[in-house]
Design a protein around this nucleic acid. Structure first.
Length: 840
RNA sequence: CCCCCGAUAGCCCAACUGGCAGAGGCGACCGACUUAAAAUCGGUUCAGUCAGGGUUCGAAUCCCUGUCGGGGGACCA
């Protein structure tokens, strides 16, 4: 009986959740962009979720941090746009459909409904009036619009090329979806190469801008992400050199970063799977043709893993052709070898074995000449051994030799000079090349945006008219969604067949769907005009809100999603829709939630269920736990944290407001002179919290709140009592700052302090500067590095006064004794450091 | 092999442009309340900052070398 009473009186998170949720839903305090809202604008965005099942702890963490920032900016007086939507196209829906025989559409929207319900209780401050789902025709219509815009500009095109093929999911993959070990990031299958005609976005046209503009994000995006993007784009600067091939009219361009070593080129290597190799082999002897055929087949069987094994033996076939080195007219043999990649540079290289390890390995294997053109010295200043003998290529810097007009120059000068010479002779030019490839966007699967292109019987293509958008996905009923290498849409005959009303010509719809990364590459614009059916987004709204001020999401999207989004933003800029070129000004990447040091997984039995945590501890305790666990970028091990500890803290905070309410004190009472200790703490907190939040030090803010709760409790117990004005002031500051982490508890505190809902719209008060200045400081006195005394001095103390005071201290005098003072350093208001030596 | 990030009490983590290593929490221990336990409340305990060297009056902080851990790239011409 008694226990129940206590519970009824105490902090009860369930009752508080039930009390405030309906109030908030009625108030809709987070609807952004109301016409009468004059507050400055902030756009805070969380990476939108994929609806596979219910929300999990990873979502809990990411959306907690995003919400902390959104709520923080409101507390600072901003009109914050904080939208939510779902990235709801994609393979998992389709795979679930195949496995369990459910409609991908039903599966997807049922999951979305479940996630929405969970979000409702978790209470991120979303503007629910702007919800979007990328699988809605109202959304993907604009995906198609974007595709057509890009098609018009020549940025969307079709080509036949060797592509990554996932044999399990039976679809092509973008380069970015293939992991370093050559497996598919989705299915885990070893990816194989297939030659197919596919749709691409010409992202390589933007490579320089995508790379150079990263400089603007320095300090605003995590260094790690900037690094990953730079690596991924992988710009190499060098020269393009044209080699004549005997018996071939057209010259062959070759890319090199070391044009200075051109005189040392003793053979040429082309990629076996390149068109050039096939062409050269075709005009070679029957024997060479056969050898080449066998080699090509062998090379193509190699998995990506094998290919990437660096200490693999070099293999290759002589193609029975010779090239002419443009700088010295030398006749050099042309080989095909799989250490040269068809889709990097021009798929052909000049081999300089003396100064490139790969070329040297190849030359030694096949007995090709090695010519030193660069004298490289080792750390001792000795010229390094002849690579032909040592087997170690002399890469690096040195002095050019055997190189005609380049002789005597260093590497950098020689490169410049070599390019100059090539350009003067018309046989080459300075050039750049990239690791980045064009973005393959077509997929042979059902659950995605149909590509709005019609194919004529003659192979011609025409874009679907703007007015005919969206090209809606046909119902999945009756379609075989099983992966079989061709898009299921092709089998929807009725859907796929279109008769041109004017010419009567029968056209076929493109059966492929778009990569879902297309959907997510521009969704942040759609939120601005989520309900506008006349345009993808309103440029005026973009002017008002965009770019995104704060983006929050997982580092797993460091390359793919962020690179594509940056690309599309630049395209939209070039199309004249927006006036900026980077979509996300600041970014926070949250870490992962682990359990016992490992990634959580249901099958391994180490799982913390979001739903059960939410049920058992409530949204506030969960959010406080996540925010308090450590720096948001770090992984959180659930074994290291205590949700009970968070709940205890919330109860303590809540009880302060409860005590204030019960004391019957009224707002606006004047402060007592004895209150300054607590008031100083409160104002220090108000002063520090903003910079801490903006530096993403959420864990420190929570710690500071705990401290404030502790000192406030002490002030109450020590005699000030809960009715004291300084206690009320502290409780209000706690409620406001706490509201960014624990909106329910803070709202209840706010009400107990006599305010109307909602605390989420309360603007944080400015700290009173008068309360921030200390009038006394504690200065440490060190003698020979050891702390000998602590002096309490007026804050206005000068260096000389501090020194005098330090020397006057008995403890300091004792420490100095009869030693001689050789140096005294005074740093007001921190320290006096005295250095001595034995008396002479 | 190359590049980036990190290492502070038993554990998770703080520590401003170099200035007393400790804000906060967890755990443990002691005490209060209780018939008892849980919960709650009060208190106590605990490292010299991964190792080695350097710069400095002074280094967790800056520099160099190494160890361990995490991430990225890598036959990319």
């Amino acid at each position: 009986m008694r226990v129940t009473e206590q519970q009824a009186e105490g902090y009860d998170f369930r009752a508080i959740q039930d009390r405030w949720l309906p109030v908030w839903e009625q108030l809709e305090p987070f609807a952004a962009g109301r016409s009468d809202d004059g507050r400055p604008k902030k756009y805070v965005l969380d990476m939108f979720p994929y609806p596979s099942g219910d929300l999990h702890m990873g979502h809990a963490e990411a959306f907690c941090f995003g919400d902390v920032l959104a709520r923080y900016w409101r507390g600072r007086g901003y009109d914050v746009l904080h939208p939510i939507g779902w990235d709801s196209f994609g393979l998992p829906a389709e795979n679930a459909a195949i496995k369990r025989g459910v409609d991908p559409r039903e599966w997807t929207y049922a999951n979305i409904a479940q996630q929405k319900a969970s979000f409702r209780l978790y209470a991120p401050s979303f503007d629910w009036s702007r919800v979007l789902h990328t699988s809605d025709p109202e959304y993907y219509k604009w995906n198609q619009w974007l595709f057509l815009k890009m098609y018009e500009k020549g940025l969307a095109y079709r080509k036949a090329s060797w592509v990554n093929w996932d044999p399990v999911d039976q679809t092509v993959l973008a380069n970015e979806q293939v992991l370093a070990d050559g497996t598919s990031e989705r299915s885990g299958a070893v990816v194989v190469k297939k030659k197919l005609t596919q749709w691409y976005f010409r992202i390589t046209d933007y490579a320089d801008r995508l790379l150079d503009d990263l400089d603007q994000l320095e300090g605003k995006w995590p260094t790690k992400v900037l690094n990953m993007q730079r690596n991924w784009i992988g710009r190499s600067v060098g020269a393009e050199v044209e080699f004549e091939i005997e018996g071939r009219a057209e010259k062959v361009p070759v890319f090199t970063t070391r044009p200075d070593t051109l005189h040392g080129a003793t053979f040429m290597v082309v990629a076996p799977d390149s068109d050039l190799a096939a062409e050269l082999a075709a005009s070679a002897s029957a024997e060479v043709r056969m050898q080449f055929q066998a080699y090509l087949e062998e090379a193509q069987k190699q998995s990506e893993i094998d290919r990437q094994n660096a200490d693999r033996e070099k293999t290759g076939v002589f193609l029975d052709h010779f090239a002419i080195n443009p700088v010295n007219g030398e006749r050099i043999p042309v080989w095909a070898a799989d250490y040269v990649l068809a889709d990097y540079g021009h798929g052909a290289i000049m081999a300089v074995p003396a100064h490139d390890q790969r070329d040297l390995d190849f030359a030694r294997k096949f007995d090709l000449p090695v010519r030193v053109v660069l004298e490289v010295r080792d750390a001792e200043g000795e010229i390094v051994a002849d690579p032909a003998e040592s087997g170690v290529a002399a890469s690096g810097d040195g002095v050019l030799v055997n190189s005609g007009e380049l002789d005597g120059l260093g590497k950098t000068d020689a490169i410049a000079k070599a390019i100059e010479v090539l350009e003067a002779r018309g046989t080459g030019r300075g050039a750049k090349t990239y690791r980045l490839r064009d973005w393959l966007i077509s997929r042979q699967r059902y659950w995605g945006t149909p590509i709005p292109i019609l194919h004529g019987a003659d192979g011609s293509m025409r874009p679907v008219e703007q007015s005919a958008l969206p090209v809606e996905l046909p119902a999945s009923e009756g379609l075989d969604l099983k992966p079989k290498g061709a898009s299921p849409l092709g089998a929807a005959t009725e859907w796929a067949t279109v008769v041109d009303p004017e010419t009567g010509e029968t056209l076929t719809r493109d059966p492929d769907t778009m990569d879902t990364f297309v959907d997510s590459s521009w969704y942040y614009f759609r939120f601005l005009s989520a309900n506008d059916d006349t345009q993808a987004f309103d440029p005026a709204e973009a002017k008002k809100w965009a770019p995104v001020d704060q983006y929050v999401g997982g580092v797993e999207h460091a390359i793919l999603h962020l690179l594509y989004s940056r690309f599309i933003t630049k395209v939209l800029h070039d199309l004249g829709y927006i006036d900026f070129e980077e979509p996300f000004l600041d970014m926070l990447n949250q870490g992962m939630v682990l359990l016992d040091g490992a990634k959580m997984s249901k099958s391994k039995g180490n799982l913390v269920e979001f739903a059960s945590e939410l049920r058992d501890h409530g949204a506030d305790a969960l959010r406080v736990t996540l925010a308090f666990a450590g720096p948001p970028e770090d992984d959180i091990d659930w074994a290291d944290v205590s949700v009970q500890g968070s709940a205890k803290f919330l109860a303590r905070a809540w009880r302060i407001a409860d005590d204030v309410q019960k004391s019957g004190s009224a707002a606006g009472a004047s402060f007592d002179s004895g209150d300054t200790g607590l008031r100083r703490a409160t104002h220090k907190l108000l002063a520090d919290a903003p910079e801490l939040v903006e530096a993403y030090k959420f864990n420190v803010v929570v710690a500071r709140l705990m401290e404030q709760v502790n000192v406030t409790r002490k002030a109450i117990d020590a005699g000030a009592g809960a009715a004291d004005a300084a206690v009320r002031e502290s409780a209000e500051a706690i409620a406001m700052i706490l509201s960014i982490f624990a909106p329910y508890a803070a709202e209840d505190m706010w009400a107990k302090l006599g305010h109307e809902p909602t605390v989420a719209l309360a603007v944080w008060p400015q700290a009173d500067p008068a309360l921030l200045v200390e009038d006394e400081v504690t200065m440490v006195v060190q003698v020979d590095r050891k702390v000998r005394d602590r002096l309490t001095l007026p804050a206005s103390v000068t260096e000389a006064e501090a020194e005098t005071a330090a020397l006057a201290s008995p403890a300091v005098q004792r420490a100095i004794g009869d030693r001689e003072i050789v140096n005294t350093v005074v740093r007001v208001p921190k320290i006096v450091s005295i250095v001595t030596k034995p008396a002479s």
